[in-house]
Simulated assay, not measured.
Amino acid sequence: MFSHHCTEVTMKDTPHLAVEANKKSIQYAMEGNKEGWLALYTDDAVVSDPVGKSPMDPAGNGHQGKAAIERFWDTVIGKANIEIRADKRWTSGDYHCCVAQVARNDLGDGNFTECDMLAVYEVNEEGLIVRMGAHWDFDNMMEQLAKVSAG
């Protein structure tokens, strides 16, 4: 018979680095904590939000580097009154997680947009984000904003 006297700590016993980065990213975005949010990223990180070409990223290569990521905060996240709910998180290895989440942006006067997304986080051994890609439907967001404007 095999003896099970293992003293190694399993991944379930310690916080997963990518999950922790996602939780902090959500917290700081909802608090409007720009400095805390930016500190989660490496200097050469890439943020694709949304993944692919959009008016926010015409080339579709993501916002590359801290300066570009800070501009993304200033033009998108920092202007929003956002509430983000993570519905489910999946981990893959030590440094990746995928998160099903919903971002609700309160536009005032009872108006809001809701964006379902799948966000993929990759962190380094220190738990800093090296790549984040948020998959969501840009056209759907524009339709929601058009309805609010027309209403």
Results as ranks from 00 to 15, higher is better:
R71N: 12
I82A: 15
H4N: 08
M1N: 11
L17E: 08
F112L: 09
E143Y: 01
A29S: 14
A18S: 06
A134K: 02
G36H: 07
V120W: 01
A67R: 00
L40Y: 01
M30G: 04
D109S: 13
Q27R: 14
E126T: 11
K66M: 05
H4Q: 11
T91V: 12
G36F: 08
K88T: 13
C115H: 05
S48D: 13
L145Y: 04
G151D: 10
S92Y: 08
R71S: 11
V123P: 00
D13P: 02
S48K: 02
F138Y: 05
G110A: 10
I84E: 05
P55I: 04
V130M: 11
V46N: 09
A39K: 07
Q27I: 15
E125L: 13
V99K: 05
A45Y: 10
A21P: 01
I82W: 01
E143G: 15
A68R: 00
G52Q: 01
G65Y: 02
F138P: 00
V76F: 03
A18F: 04
R85E: 15
G78M: 03
P15F: 13
K66T: 15
F2E: 14
E125H: 10
V148C: 06
A80R: 08
D49I: 04
A119R: 05
G52C: 03
M56R: 07
R71M: 07
V51C: 00
G108E: 06
Y41C: 08
V120K: 00
K88W: 03
K66P: 12
L145M: 13
E83F: 09
R71E: 10
W73Y: 07
S54F: 01
D57L: 00
W136G: 01
F72N: 00
S54E: 03
A29I: 02
M56F: 02
V99P: 07
